[in-house]
Design a protein around this nucleic acid. Structure first.
Lengths: 340, 340
DNA sequence: CTGTTAGCGCATTCAT
DNA sequence: ATGAATGCGCTAACAG
């Protein structure tokens, strides 16, 4: 019969013929222990296959070694790559990563907050775009870092894409291709990230002295919305030669609508997206877009959170990572002879 | 100044003027406590905002309330939907879900096994297709359930798609459309799931008395492999009218190759996939495929695992869920006048 | 029905 | 440099 129960610190101590205090020291403060003793302990640990019971350790320390990440929707294509970054960094720091999803229900956020307060996790990564707040509990908020969508509330560090800079780079690309009349299909809902893309668009155009060529259509960030925006545009006469879309879904709608009308992309119109969702490369034509540096975002966010957990002062309010422009087939030179 | 430290069971007991044992009972065995006492306790809990310290509880019970899910690749499109099912069911049972990824490295699997042995998790969900095994540790394996890819090793319950049944349904659909000569583009690598799809294909054809119309091409489950298989096929003269592919990636390759040769789908050839990856609907033509019931798989797997954790005997070796046929545009009736 | 108490495994004083 | 003893918060056995 093998060992039915995992080795405890006591097993190690007995085998090494020292006290449990010494074993603990040998592990956590090796320099405070005689070399010979340390060796005995190390050997005993190897023999027993000892791993400290994390529960006991957490109880004693009053702090867990888990980080909880909560998201409104785990299925979000942005989620997985960020998760990888989070998990890598957490593991490197000796932490485990827990995940929870709220399915958009703020109540579930509060539930997870309780979870934190019961010491099950040392800190929290927020994908939600808002801070779950338990009106009942008056305990101070645990360490948190927001990711993906900036937080309206202040005081919580945010790590995400440089939406403004990315949008600006996108416009500059279009301008470099000769486009002078560019439409921005935006998102009028309250999303900070989308608002910032709009600002980057404006800036890029203004810097090139092209404020006149600017057209802005409001939409809702969905494929349907993108389609509808194009339809509205065709009611007027003053067509752009390029569409800069607030995200890939919108761009997909624009492409579909344009194609349905018999236009060719990029010969007749150029269109760009933002995000680089998995489907972006499968559209026809394949979509030129700005890819969010998702894994890097996850990694940076976790690094900051672990710093917070371990008592460091927060560095800065926002850490913005520049997206990469992914050049595919939906952007071309401005059509020279517009046939319409 | 607010409460700096969370309320403990002792705070509640003091406020309710009972002993801590009574508080614990009021929570876990309400029927063993007088109604009036229970009310006092409930009120005290509400006032203090008490949540049991999970660490202390786990330490005492010798069992954690976390389940660890490990996957070779979190980015896998199959992963997120299964994760949702897992998380839902875990939460319903009072468990949290931890995730880890091995990046295909067996060593990291062993690392997670140690994690389990340090009591950080009560059980484990395996996406890996194999059991991480620590040669050093002789402790018996913790409760595990495999998901997605069947396990070669026996003794571990598996929950997944009914690959055989799904493939068979797919072939039957093709046959119903009039196809008599059907090629199966398989995957010769060692994947049990893919092997089972092949068997379902054979069965469907045999049941219709169509063993003659059967062609089987080996491939590797990738887009490139699908493309290559078609090219090989065109070296011969005896073309099928439909391609049943082992998965969506392969189907994408087949579609690309066929389209590049100037054929139209589904007019000239029908093609089917398997899995329903997110891109499937974005192919042109949109791919008809079998969708794995992923969330249901996750839910079922977690239910079984929690049963195991709580000491129930495992029910059955395999739980197979039938995939749904997603009818899109890549399947049509058998071409009546083959022009080639 | 309720209270007293032991002990889960560990890190950490306080002695030595 | 090392050991003995304490308590983190909780549940369950045992008494009453």
């Amino acid at each position: 019969m093998k060992k039915p129960t995992p080795a405890t610190i006591e097993d190690v101590a007995r085998l090494a013929e020292v006290s449990i205090a010494t074993v603990s020291r040998a592990i956590h403060m090796p320099e405070k222990v005689a070399v010979s003793t340390r060796q005995k302990v190390d050997r005993a640990i190897a023999v027993t296959g000892y791993t400290a019971n994390a529960m006991a350790r957490s109880l004693r320390l009053g702090r867990s070694n888990m980080i909880l990440a909560i998201a409104p929707d785990i299925g979000d294509p942005n989620f997985a790559p960020i998760l990888i970054g989070l998990e890598n960094e957490a593991r490197a720091g000796g932490y485990g990563l827990l995940i929870g999803h709220t399915q958009g229900d703020p109540l579930r956020g509060v539930e997870y907050l309780k979870f934190l307060n019961s010491n099950q996790a040392a800190g929290m990564i927020l994908f939600t775009g808002y801070v779950p707040l338990d009106p009942a509990s008056q305990t101070r908020l645990p360490p948190m870092v927001a990711v993906g969508e900036p937080l309206a509330q202040g005081g919580i560090p945010f790590v995400g894409t440089d939406d403004r800079g990315g949008a600006r780079k996108m416009v500059e690309l279009l301008i470099a291709q000769g486009h002078r009349r560019i439409a921005f299909i935006g998102d009028s809902r309250e999303r900070l990230s989308h608002h910032r893309r709009r600002i980057g668009f404006d800036e890029g155009l203004a810097a090139a002295g092209l404020r006149d060529g600017q057209q802005v259509l409001d939409s809702d960030g969905t494929l349907e919305g993108g389609r509808a925006a194009v339809e509205r545009l065709f009611l007027r006469d003053d067509l752009p030669t390029a569409f800069a879309c607030v995200n890939d879904q919108t761009a997909a709608g624009v492409i579909l609508s344009l194609t349905a009308r018999g236009y060719r992309i990029p010969e007749d119109f150029s269109v760009t997206g933002f995000d680089d969702i998995p489907q972006a490369g499968f559209l026809s034509p394949a979509l030129t877009t700005a890819r969010q540096p998702r894994t890097a975002i996850g990694q940076a966010a976790m690094a900051i959170l672990l710093g917070l957990v371990e008592g460091e002062a927060p560095e800065q309010a926002e850490t913005l990572l520049m997206p990469d422009l992914i050049l595919r087939d939906s952007v071309g030179a401005r059509p020279v002879n517009r046939r319409f």
